[in-house]
């Protein structure tokens, strides 16, 4: 087993640990910390996939911005979740069965499938190439994404703003 495989297994273990903690822990602040662990491990997986720029974006947006945003939302809505209340809905055993069944199905399909993989070295600077691709062949979706972000920004402000009497 090579070193990169060991690194992958460690990162995958951390990601799964964080993900399980995220859905299983009772305290909402602890679930956010667990989510941060999962997202950091996923950023490590991105590095293994030779996508260093996206790993940094992952850390900046998910670990930096999103975790803080969710923490603020938890603090703003905090007092409704007292410590005795159930964190899971009544249908959680059914949800567990559905999720486990989907994973079993996907696992069987993925392990059985054979993909036409090619092994080629990464050539050139990926960040430069990605930047040129975003203003070249992907210019239109890039602009659409920026409009979407603007709309979401304005929408979030309008929705969350306190209604003036």
């Amino acid at each position: 087993m090579s070193l990169t495989q060991i690194v992958f297994i460690i990162l995958a273990g951390l990601a799964l640990l964080g993900a399980v903690g995220m859905v299983a822990l009772r305290n909402l602040v602890h679930t956010v910390l667990s989510m941060v662990l999962a997202f950091l491990a996923v950023a490590g997986v991105f590095v293994l996939l030779d996508a260093g720029f996206l790993a940094m974006v992952q850390i900046l947006i998910y670990v930096g911005a999103l975790a803080i945003l969710i923490l603020f939302a938890i603090m703003l809505t905090r007092d409704m979740m007292d410590r005795k209340a159930h964190v899971n809905a009544a249908q959680w055993p059914l949800a567990l069965v559905v999720a486990a069944a989907l994973f079993a199905l996907l696992g069987v399909l993925l392990v059985g499938a054979s993909w036409p993989t090619v092994t080629a070295a990464i050539s050139g600077d990926q960040v430069v190439a990605l930047g040129e691709a975003l203003v070249g062949p992907y210019a239109l979706p890039f602009e659409a994404a920026s409009v979407l972000l603007l709309a979401a920004l304005i929408g979030a402000i309008v929705i969350a703003r306190e209604a003036r009497a």
Partner: peptide, 9 residues
């Protein structure tokens, strides 16, 4: 797939 299913749960 595992992360997706945990998220789905």
């Amino acid at each position: 797939a595992a992360l997706f299913c945990i998220g789905l749960y």
